[in-house]
């Protein structure tokens, strides 16, 4: 699968061959940094002053790189396809190699960041548990009531939440049985066949 560049995107990236390859490397580092932590316009101004170009040009260059990286990571295109795609831009071989390296080095992490954007339920993070025996309460003295208290840590977007639950021993065994059935299902013939065929 090849990437298709819009004219605007080509124009923005067109700034890259005009500067030194070490500068392109620096832009690549900034692009990856911005993808991880969000953009910081001050950096554009600083770079613009150093290179003596309008800060918009820098911004377009970095954003063009960010778009190039996210699109190719999103589609998970192969090394060969990436190289063939950037060929259209007419850059030097050295610059193409630099971009390929940038893509391959950061693909995994960028895919992980993009994966977090997908709509999803809160994600399981951790489970803590405690075993208690209730001995008495206001309403009833002399009890022996075993309880399992569980703290379920979930993560949704960037926020972590923890919820507290209780259950009794019999229900705990039932829950366990049910979740083990879920785990076993992944190894069933039906699932394995589907997983093999969707690639």
């Amino acid at each position: 699968m090849l990437l298709v560049f819009s004219d605007e995107h080509k124009e923005h990236l067109g700034f890259l061959p005009e500067v030194d390859s070490s500068v392109v490397g620096e832009f690549g580092r900034i692009a990856v940094e911005f993808l991880k932590k969000g953009s910081n316009p001050k950096i554009y101004e600083g770079a613009a002053r150093k290179l003596n170009v309008p800060s918009e040009t820098i911004q377009h260059g970095v954003e063009g790189l960010m778009y190039l990286l996210t699109e190719s990571s999103k589609l998970m295109i192969s090394d060969v396809d990436f190289q063939d795609s950037v060929l259209v831009l007419g850059f030097s071989e050295e610059l193409n190699k630099l971009l390929l390296q940038l893509y391959l080095e950061n693909r995994k992490e960028i895919r992980q960041i993009l994966g977090e954007l997908a709509p999803s339920l809160p994600h399981y993070q951790n489970l803590e548990w405690r075993l208690d025996v209730q001995l008495a309460s206001r309403a009833l003295r002399q009890q022996v009531k075993p309880t399992v208290t569980m703290k379920l840590h979930l993560k949704s977007g960037g926020t972590q939440t923890a919820r507290l639950f209780q259950t009794d021993p019999a229900t705990l065994l039932h829950l366990l049985q049910e979740l083990e059935r879920a785990l076993a299902e992944v190894k069933s013939n039906h699932c394995r066949r589907i997983l093999r065929n969707i690639k």
Binding site: S73, K74, L75, M76, R111, L114, G115, L117, A118, P119, S137, R138, A139, L140, Q143, K145, T147, T149, M150, L164, F165, Q166, T167, D168, T171, H174, L175, E178, L179, R181, A182, E185, V186, C191, I194, L195, I198
Partner: peptide, 27 residues
């Protein structure tokens, strides 16, 4: 013994298995 203040009690669990192929951000 049922008159008690305690955290919510889990009574059952259901599950669903899905295979995520792609979404708008990642293929």
């Amino acid at each position: 013994s049922s008159i008690d203040r305690c955290p919510p009690h889990i009574t059952d669990a259901s599950w669903r298995l899905e295979y995520c192929m792609k979404n708008g951000h990642v293929h």
